[in-house]
Amino acid sequence: MAARHEQLVEDLAGRLAPVRPLPRPGLRAAAWLGAALLLGAVLAMRFAAVGMEGQAPADFQLAMVGALLTAIAAAYAAFVTSVPGRPVGWALLPLPPAALWLGASGLGCLRAWVSPIPDLHGEHEAVGCLGFLVCVSIPLSLLIVAMLRRACPLRPNLTAALAGLAVAAAAATLLAPFHPHDTALVDIFTHAVVVAGVIGVNVLAGGRLLTRG
């Protein structure tokens, strides 16, 4: 048995090539968030901002702050859990901001239900939002999975779920300037489906992509 290990050690030492240690998880998360911001800027140039009339309701602002914090926390947690030996408790970091995001969105939905404002935006708005979310989510997912693969995620499904949450939250944050302030039930339902879908696809595909032999 010892001979088998000696052989492997010789093989690996013979194949050794210099590598640059990966930057810290915080830096890598910041790089990914920067790329997301860049994507948002490009989209801002393409789409004219709509629905900016007047001050946005407090709960909408709160929801957006929650989504932004969720994106930051989930991205950081995903990069931390991709490094062996880091405490897995970091995975809980995005839960409080996610609760804020979902809670505030639910509140906005309730407000719209209690005191409806005449809906100026038609059905096509919801479809547009769905397209926007998917268009933003796909490149961001591909980027974060490619970045995470360079590390060694020992819990691929957990890391992939955090990556999915980061992508969904970032997409929701980027959507905010182009989105009417009123959160109708259809909207929040669409958002929830997209968020769940992005996380699910990331776990299914990303979990496999992140598995190291």
């Binding site: 240690p21 990966l22 991709s82 062996p84 360079r150 190291r212 032999g213």
Partner: peptide, 11 residues
């Protein structure tokens, strides 16, 4: 050992 080799950049 194989994983250590593949993931050595993550240290």
């Amino acid at each position: 050992l194989m994983t250590v080799h593949a993931a050595r950049a993550s240290y």
